[in-house]
Design a protein around this nucleic acid. Structure first.
Length: 916
RNA sequence: GGUUCCAUAGCUCAGUUGGCUAGAGCGCACGAUUCACAUUCGUGAGGUCGCAGGUUCGAGCCCUGCUGGAACCACCA
């Protein structure tokens, strides 16, 4: 094959990927492998293009996969695609909107089919892009989050949890987006600080509590502390002022709460107040929730639309009155208000209160408001019946496994963060009101009379709502001979393709909701590795889980809980969490800012390898770090360098006529073997500790600074072709995990390689003579000093090099001349002259006329001073008796040696100065 | 309010149980150049490691406090 002279990645990347894929090398060597290595791809959303974070994820994971494959492990890198329930749903709703249609124009089944087609088009696009990034993943094992095996496993887990009594139907407040008309988990809600207002509203007290009369005058004291409230004319307790940011929910008020310790309201417990605009009477309750410091210290309680109020309602057995419907419109508030949006209703309520003289104050405040993370709509806490998982046992198991160190975290600090989260975890709402997802396998007994829907505005007293005992405690495997009344309200059944089934002679209707995607994706390591009960599986647990630090809670925590629950063992041994890829100035990338970098564009501009090395550079675990095209350019330059030095080596091989036996090494050859070996063990350590950026840097330096700049240059003088072949192959293999395409392309172009580099073996330890290698270090010092001195001498001329009694220089005259481009290198024949190169401590001179030497004197003087300062520092250390006493002997000895060296150097420099 | 992280060269970042003159890439300056590579080669400038204390023979690293920045969680009637 002819090695083309230019490095043009777009000419070979696609072809090489296709060859890898066709060869079957992406599949694990054996399912029974002793040295198994498994890693899964966090499934990219199958609803669009890859973004920069996917680029990073693939660069990280694939370098791990390739590294372990080269090390002879049976490597299984499993790709996936995410149906991304809600995310895809949002994308598809936009598609529908563009067509002037809406989800409500279709049945659930029609919608499901449409989205299925849509996703499968997008999915192949996504897969193509993953290939462009070079992921060496086993496409035959690609797992889609709606695959049959996933659904089967998820149903199995759900059934187990149902039988274990961990699933319950609860009527709770959920985060509800009125635009998308679905509930969210807490983690899917974004809190944004916003400016708002706090209004003071007077509720008239209509009946005092019986028994003890109010001590003092609550109203008076309440008013005293509250600005903007007119002073009361009468000491008679007549009203209570509540503070609220949401006056429109007043129709749902069922009580007013005050803190029991708040003396302003002492004695008012149980008193009734009249709810403005409605005439309804509600009680005053004492509850710790009311903060005496905030507002007037009296808070209206709306259990159906506020989390805290919900809990207050639970404690006091209060009703829950829904006044906002699923579309975000007012309901059950009377004809004047029903059908208004919450914002319209707020205005009207405020206006009406003002008219009634009940609006007593208005304060500007800043408070956090929950928003839908996708559309930004304000989340409306809404009462819904949903399926919940009791997370207590799950979290406890995860906490104990993580605390016991069964999973190693990179960065380590994330372990603490995760434990902190698990300790405060609340029950998990797994119901979503969108059609695109895995159907919840639960059927409800159809009632003959009124609908069992929970959508009625006025709900019954809340005792049944969160009661778990309401649900049957076991699955429905035993047909009941009981009467219809004794049949369970809910039964588990996996026949979710049916909308209704029969059981015990009764009709059961499927719950229309789907699972939260995190419920199914928490099974990812289990389903991807085809783990099954009772079968041994060397690929489970995964060796590592690599994913974004932003989904530590949403995903990693849940995978750990689910892995432990389903398989009894943690789902992975190590977790590597990457941070966000920020733009060049450290800003978050966003479409609106216009600072988004597209990985696929960078790949086509600079090549896949350049992108991969570029995005890894300067990056460490868990940190949000800047990224710019510059680092990709640097990666591309390295590829170019490697390409060209490989061409040079090939040309040397082409001219060579000897055999492949590596002959005795010279010092430059010992030196490069030492450098390669050092780099190899450094990379091994770096890969073990997930220091990808450092591994790339190690290899960059090896290839450029060591191999190209010194070794290849020295081989232009003395060639050792068998060693050139061997070392080049080692270097290519070591870089392959990070730059798979260019290393494979070169491998295929070289005449002396066989097979594919992706299947090559990681380099073994190299033999070399360390003393000989160290001599070459001495030579590089001489060469560097000659170069530096050339630049330091005014005029920029290269002067002849003379040497005295120095075998190192004598033996390497040609090499020194070649590396320094000196006009000549020759013996001074016992007549030293010109400038002596003092730093290297060798008898080497530059044959410079005396008038030029004089001009050089000042730089020499500077150097004497600099060395003098270093010497002073070292001497000061030795003068300290406690240092000599307490520091390790080796270190002290080293310091002594350094002092001796510096003293000798200064002597030489002074001699040199005197010579001038 | 809670948890966690960060502050080192002009920029983006390394610096792994404390140890010799604190490193890299990019950028910058000066110089080179038929002979693998201008996507190149050589040389250099640039840092009191956020501030103040402490521990230690020795601190960029450990401890305390402070200042500035970020992320996440919870919450604000």
């Amino acid at each position: 094959m002819k090695f083309s002279s230019a490095y043009e990645p777009d000419k070979f990347e696609a072809e090489i990927y296709a060859a890898w894929e066709a060869s079957g090398v992406f599949s694990p060597a054996s399912l029974e492998a002793e040295k198994a290595y498994s890693i899964v791809m966090p499934p990219p959303n199958a609803n669009g293009n890859l973004h920069i974070g996917h680029g990073l994820t693939v660069a990280l994971e694939d370098s791990l996969a390739r590294y372990h494959r080269l090390r002879g492990e049976s490597t299984w890198y499993i790709p996936g695609a995410d149906h991304a329930g809600f995310e895809t749903w949002v994308v598809y709703e936009r598609v529908l909107e563009a067509q002037g249609r809406s989800r409500f124009d279709f049945s659930r089944e029609e919608l499901y089919a449409q989205v299925w087609d849509f996703v499968h088009q997008q999915k192949s696009n996504m897969e193509f892009q993953v290939r462009q990034l070079g992921a060496s993943c086993d496409w035959a094992s690609e797992t889609f989050t709606l695959d049959e095996k996933v659904v089967r496993r998820v149903y199995k887990t759900f059934e187990k949890m149902w039988n274990d009594g961990m699933i319950y139907r609860g009527e709770k407040l959920v985060n509800y987006c009125p635009k998308h008309q679905t509930a969210f988990a807490d983690i899917e809600v974004e809190h944004v600080d916003e400016k708002g207002k706090l209004w003071d509203i007077a509720y008239t007290i209509v009946s005092e509590t019986t028994g003890s009369a109010a001590a003092g005058s609550p109203t008076e004291s309440a008013l005293g502390g509250s600005a903007g409230v007119p002073p009361a004319a009468s000491p008679v307790v007549s009203e209570i002022i509540v503070s609220t940011t949401r006056p429109e929910t007043l129709f749902g008020d069922v009580a007013v709460a005050v803190n029991p310790s708040d003396s302003r309201y002492a004695g008012l417990e149980g008193a009734l107040v009249e709810l403005p605009l409605t005439g309804r009477q509600i009680p005053i309750v004492f509850d710790e929730h009311a903060d005496p410091e905030y507002g007037t210290g009296a808070v209206k309680i709306t259990p159906a639309h506020d989390y805290d109020d919900f809990e207050v309602g639970e404690r006091h057995g209060l009703d829950r009155i829904r006044v906002i419907d699923d579309a975000g419109m007012m309901t059950g508030c009377g004809p004047e208000y029903d059908g208004l949006s919450t914002a319209e209703c707020r205005k009207k309520v405020l206006h009406d209160l003002e008219e009634a003289g009940l609006l007593r104050g208005e304060h500007k405040i800043t408070h956090a408001v929950a928003h839908c993370y996708k559309c930004g709509t304000v989340i409306e806490p809404t009462l819904k019946e949903q399926w919940f998982i009791d997370v207590e046992k799950l979290a406890a198991a995860a906490i104990s496994a993580v605390s016991a160190g069964e999973i190693k975290f990179f960065p380590a600090s994330k372990k603490k963060v995760l434990l902190n989260y698990l300790k405060g975890l609340k029950d998990w709402n797994i119901s979503r009101q969108i059609p695109w997802g895995i159907a919840i396998p639960m059927f409800r007994k159809a009632t003959s009379g009124r609908s069992s829907s929970s959508e009625d505005a006025l709900l019954a007293h809340g005792t049944k709502s969160t009661a778990r005992s309401d649900a049957p405690s076991s699955s429905n495997s035993i047909p009941a001979e009981a009467s219809q009344d004794e049949l369970p309200e809910w039964i588990f059944d996996t026949r979710t393709e049916l909308s209704e089934i029969e059981y015990g002679g009764a009709k059961y209707v499927r719950d229309e909701d789907t699972f939260d995607t995190w419920f199914s994706s928490s099974h990812w390591p289990i389903v991807c590795t085809d783990w099954e009960e009772g079968l041994s599986n060397p690929y489970y647990p995964l060796n590592v889980m690599e994913t974004g630090a932003d989904i530590l809670f949403a995903w990693v925590a849940r995978m750990i809980m689910m892995g432990l629950y389903v398989t009894g063992s943690v789902p992975f041994r190590e977790v590597y969490l990457h941070g966000l890829v920020l733009d060049a100035h450290g800003q978050k990338m966003s479409k609106s800012k216009g600072n988004v970098l597209n990985p696929v564009e960078l790949v086509s501009k600079y090549g896949s390898d350049a992108f991969r090395m570029g995005i890894l550079r300067g990056r460490s675990a868990g940190m949000n770090q800047a990224f710019s095209e510059n680092s990709v350019v640097s990666g591309r330059n390295l590829c170019n360098k490697l390409w060209n030095l490989s061409r040079l080596v090939q040309s040397m091989v082409d001219e060579y006529e000897g055999d492949d036996k590596v002959r005795t090494l010279n010092m430059g050859e010992d030196w490069i073997c030492r450098e390669i070996d050092t780099a190899r063990s450094a990379v091994e350590k770096q890969m073990k500790t997930y220091r990808f950026a450092e591994a790339v840097e190690t290899l960059h330096s090896l290839i450029w600074d060591k191999y190209a700049d010194w070794f290849i240059e020295s081989q232009k003088i003395y060639k050792n072709v068998p060693l050139l072949k061997k070392t080049l192959m080692d270097i290519l293999v070591m870089l392959h995990p990070f730059a798979p395409f260019v290393t494979e392309a070169i491998w295929q172009n070289l005449s002396f390689t066989s097979g594919m580099i992706i299947e090559a073996a990681w380099p073994a330890r190299l033999k070399y003579d360390p003393i000989s290698a160290a001599e070459f270090d001495g030579l590089t010092t001489v060469v560097s000093e000659i170069r530096r001195t050339y630049v330091a001498i005014p005029g920029g001329k290269r002067w002849p090099v003379l040497f005295g009694d120095d075998s190192l220089v004598d033996d390497n005259q040609l090499l020194i001349q070649s590396l320094t481009k000196a006009p000549s290198v020759m013996s001074c024949e016992g007549q030293p002259r010109g400038i002596r190169l003092a730093l290297s401590g060798r008898e080497v001179y530059l044959d410079v006329p005396s008038e030029v030497v004089a001009e050089y004197a000042s730089s020499l003087e500077e150097r004497i001073l600099a060395v003098g300062r270093e010497l002073d520092g070292l001497n000061a250390r030795m003068m300290n008796p406690r240092y000599v006493d307490k520091a390790p002997a080796e270190l002290v000895e080293e310091t002594r040696r350094a002092i001796a060296e510096k003293e000798a150097l200064i002597e030489r420099l002074k001699l040199e100065r005197e010579a001038i």
